[in-house]
């Protein structure tokens, strides 16, 4: 199957797919800016988890409009659902481990539930290491 997106038979499908792909790319752009500019591990991980869930889901939805069909729909829907469910789980696991090995907490943060829950366990502590 040779596929030419310009000569797509339905123009609206091509346009919708491209709009969805551009939206997903913009989510990735925010994640990109976030992972450079945000101050500590926890905020960075929030930016990355957003991109992993919403960004990948939007891009895969947009790709579906270019290659329509039942098999593509099943595969891409499974991928999107898995991505939406598991991205947050992975990010939370990484951040919890990062807290336990003592990643610094950005100093304006003033609500730290993990500090009370992991009493006695090693962590950044009240003063915060860097």
């Amino acid at each position: 199957m040779v596929f030419d997106p310009v000569l797509h038979e339905h123009l609206w499908m091509s346009v919708t797919g491209q709009v969805l792909i551009v939206l997903g790319s913009l989510v990735f752009l925010t994640a990109m800016v976030g992972i450079v500019r945000l101050p500590d591990l926890y905020t960075r991980s929030s930016a990355v988890a957003t991109a992993a869930g919403v960004g990948v889901a939007l891009i895969l939805l947009g790709v579906f409009f270019f290659v329509p069909g039942v098999t593509t729909a099943v595969k891409l829907m499974a991928a999107v659902l898995l991505q939406l469910v598991t991205s947050s789980v992975g990010a939370m696991a990484v951040v919890r481990s990062g807290y336990l090995i003592g990643s610094a907490v950005y100093s304006p943060t003033h609500h730290n539930e993990l500090e009370e829950r992991t009493e006695g366990a090693p962590g950044p502590g009240k003063e915060g290491r860097s």
Binding site: I35, L41, R44, S45, V48, A91, V94, V95, S97, G98, I101, G102, S103, A104, S130
Partner: peptide, 8 residues
């Protein structure tokens, strides 16, 4: 800065 950032 540390390994957790690298994992992210």
């Amino acid at each position: 800065p540390n390994d957790a950032n690298r994992v992210i």
